[in-house]
Amino acid sequence: MIKPDRRGLLAAGLAGLAGPSLAQTPQPEPYLALALQTACDAVNADATPEAARARIGRAISRIGAQVRASVGFLRGFTGVAPRLVLLPEYAFTGFPQGESRELWIAKAAFDPKGREYADLATLAQGARVFLVVNAYETDPKFPGLYFQSTVILSPAGETVLRYRRMISLFAPTPFDVWDRFLDTYGYDAVFPVAKTEIGTLAAIASEEILYPEIARMTAQKGAEIYLHPTSEVGSPDLTPKEIARRARAVENMAYVVSANTGGLIGTAIPAASTDGMSKVIDPSGRVLAVAGEGESLVANAVVDLVSLRSLRRRAGMTNLMSRQPWGAYAQGYAEAPGLKPGEAPPDRDAASGRQAETIRRLVEAGVLR
């Protein structure tokens, strides 16, 4: 007897769904999601903040032209409208390589109400897409700090999601200023989702794809499409991050759209070290599209929300989300001897010391041997 696999279930759409309520509701049209693989022109070598800001402006213009051209080409070539464009991690600046916190803020951190985001909002409006960008940014409520943020801009130019990266060895995170962050924004802002006409969107930054809990927190809020900006070794082999991308898609019954840089230029690091393998993965863990090396629009695929929602509403062993005993995990997490929240972000040396202290506690507790 041939057993149906999840691909068949996904393709079945509404055919086997009991009850008229969903079928009578207007359903979203399939659309293209694009993980735009573009080069990152890093600002590290710029001698002054002014030179760095000029480079960022050129990057926004260059990448903006690529977004508009890619959306127009794909719309004409496929006949399906691209409605979601994801850019790679820190695509406009690169990452800090020894700069002090103050210098990196001056050179590379975006003001949430500043020119860079205004230009990107105009780009989203002009291209008529949800534009997803990853950047370092300041926060007037946390002076002297920057966060690495993933921001979703709607076709109306509005910010519909702002996610501050939660796990980073050296960059500040909300967990480093945990009590203040919760007092300022509340817990909903820690793991936000955006409920939009193209689905419920959530962000996972870079290596956070390796941590199932980051995705789980938004899965509980209905996340249907995970947006994963990254800058990593692109390899046809199953790297840890590649395994994790597929796992996050399967275990959360969701799409994963992952955009890698198409090379990192302007630093001493060999440019092609972070290049290639941007992709779109469906809820069964299949790679629907994948880019090779260099700047590319190849990583685009159709997102079918009707089929996804049908799959999530169907009873059976394949409906992993409905079978989760969430409450069984709460006490274990609460008692885990892991990283403790901080009152202030550590500097680079202190961050390594804090990690060593966490490892010591895990050894003491018998978690590590």
Score class of each variant (00 low, 15 high):
I281K: 09
T274Q: 13
P143I: 00
F175L: 12
R7K: 13
L32I: 09
E102A: 13
R286N: 14
G338A: 13
L311V: 08
R128F: 00
G234Y: 07
V80M: 07
A171Y: 01
M317S: 15
Y117K: 07
Q148D: 12
E89T: 08
I243T: 14
A69C: 04
G327C: 03
P20H: 05
A12H: 09
A351R: 14
A289W: 05
G98E: 09
E224C: 03
E293C: 10
A91S: 15
A215Q: 04
F170L: 15
D46S: 12
K279F: 00
E102R: 08
Q24I: 04
A272G: 10
A12Y: 05
R101Q: 14
F92I: 02
N260L: 00
V80P: 02
V256Y: 01
M317T: 14
P341M: 12
D5M: 05
S284L: 01
I265R: 14
Y187S: 14
A106T: 08
N252L: 03
P240H: 10
D139V: 00
R58E: 15
Q125M: 11
F191W: 11
P270N: 10
S310Y: 00
E364H: 11
A23Y: 01
T150G: 13
R128L: 02
G234D: 06
L362Y: 02
E99F: 09
R58Y: 04
T267G: 14
G79D: 11
L34K: 01
F175N: 07
E357G: 08
F73Y: 13
K3D: 09
R83S: 07
R312K: 15
N252C: 10
E137C: 08
S284P: 02
P337E: 14
R354T: 13
T358A: 15
L227A: 05
L368N: 10
E207G: 04
Y90T: 12
P270H: 09
E213G: 05
P96N: 09
P26S: 09
F73W: 09
G72K: 08
G338W: 12
A223Y: 04
E99P: 06
I60W: 00
S296Q: 11
G294M: 08
L131I: 01
A351L: 13
L103C: 10
V193F: 01
R248T: 11
T230V: 11
L320D: 08
A351I: 10
I56G: 04
F175R: 11
K107T: 07
L362C: 12
T318E: 15
T38W: 01
R323Y: 03
P236S: 08
G76Y: 01
A11K: 06
T239W: 07
S61K: 12
L201N: 00
T138I: 02
E251P: 03
T274A: 12
I198C: 03
I265A: 14
A299P: 07
A272N: 13
G76C: 04
L131C: 04
